[in-house]
Simulated assay, not measured.
Amino acid sequence: MYTKDDPRAALATDSTDSGIAAPEYHDFAGLGRGTWYTRAQNVLLAYTSPGPGQSLDAGEFTFEHVLLLVHDSSAAEVLAGEEKVTLHGQGLMVIPPGTSEIVSLGDGDLVQLVRTDEPGWAARARNAGSYAEPHPRVTPLTPWPAPAGGDKLRVYPLADVPRDPKRFGRIFRTRAFMVNFLPPHEGPRDPAKFSPHHHDDFEQVSLAVAGEFVHHIRTPWTTDSRTWREDDHVRVGSPSVTVIPPPTVHTSAAAAPGHNQLIDIFSPPRADFSAQGWVLNAEEFPQP
């Protein structure tokens, strides 16, 4: 990119010369039981390390929201209107708008994904100030079409989905979110097999639920050299939430000697992943 008075400006391919947001790292490892709130532009995460029988945020919701069961020891009962379902082990529940309640039945962790325009939620985020003004490079959320059969409580146990090397992870989508349960990685990642890449207009939220990771993130230069940053090579534990802004170049590497697992979250859902046929519940949540 070039300044407007530079003759080479006509050759530029990136017309957005606004500042690039800084990556954010929120590491909750070792904090014990509790709930921690953090957000990206369009999605708020409420990460809870619960006790058995603990109730999470019963109340009225304007929009759908999502519950992630992130460990094999996670278990929850969800009541939504007249519906009630239970899930044990890793998986995902889509909870319809209206009155609902989540009750933990195990000691594994639970994560709620809530739209940031859901009344009363965005201000809870520990990084709410980072989004006092919308980030101009991030596409705002326009919800995808209504689900087939209308809004209802939907349950997706991960145990029902075998791993397939032809498919990238195990991906589910809703009207507002896309969630990818990436395969666990045993031991550190091979340094000869990293995958640096960037996204033009959406954030990637990397949720570490087991082990440790190093996030390598490079911020491209704009014409304003005062906004340039050194490369990041930040090690995080689990649980942790890392928000990777566009169009930074990034790759993440498992770093602990044992079990490491990431869950990637996007809002709005990714059209490119959807086009590959990788979304497991695509028939229930159609594309625009």
Rank of each mutant, 00 (worst) to 15 (best):
V70A: 13
V70Q: 08
D72Y: 09
S74P: 05
A75C: 04
A76G: 07
V78I: 10
L79D: 14
A80E: 08
G81D: 00
E83Q: 15
K84D: 09
V85H: 11
T86V: 15
L87N: 05
H88Y: 14
G89Y: 03
Q90G: 09
Q90N: 06
L92G: 03
L92W: 14
V94D: 12
I95S: 08
P96M: 09
P96V: 07
P96S: 09
P97N: 11
G98A: 05
T99L: 13
S100L: 11
E101A: 15
E101Q: 14
E101R: 15
I102Y: 01
S104V: 03
L105I: 06
L105C: 07
L105H: 09
L105W: 08
D107W: 06
G108F: 03
G108Y: 01
G108W: 04
D109Y: 08
L110R: 10
Q112W: 01
Q112Y: 02
L113N: 02
R115L: 01
T116V: 12
P119T: 06
G120D: 06
W121A: 04
W121G: 00
A122E: 11
A122S: 12
A123H: 12
A123L: 13
A123V: 15
R124Y: 06
R124F: 13
R124M: 14
A125R: 02
R126T: 14
N127G: 10
A128L: 06
G129A: 08
Y131V: 04
Y131A: 08
A132H: 02
P134G: 01
H135P: 00
P136Y: 04
P136H: 06
R137Q: 05
T139S: 12
P140D: 07
L141F: 08
L141S: 07
T142Y: 04
P143Q: 00
P143M: 05
P147V: 02
A148G: 10
G149N: 02
G149M: 08
G150R: 02
K152C: 13
L153T: 07
L153I: 11
V155L: 14
V155D: 01
Y156T: 05
P157T: 09
L158R: 03
D160L: 12
D160P: 01
D160W: 10
V161Q: 15
V161L: 14
V161D: 11
V161S: 05
V161P: 02
P162S: 08
P162A: 05
R163Y: 14
R163D: 13
D164Q: 04
K166I: 06
K166W: 02
R167L: 09
I171A: 13
I171H: 00
F172P: 00
T174Q: 08
A176V: 02
A176Y: 07
F177T: 11
M178R: 08
M178V: 03
V179T: 11
V179P: 06
N180K: 01
F181A: 08
L182Q: 13
L182C: 13
L182W: 10
P183Y: 08
P183V: 07
P183H: 00
P183N: 07
P184L: 05
P184H: 03
P184K: 04
H185A: 13
E186N: 14
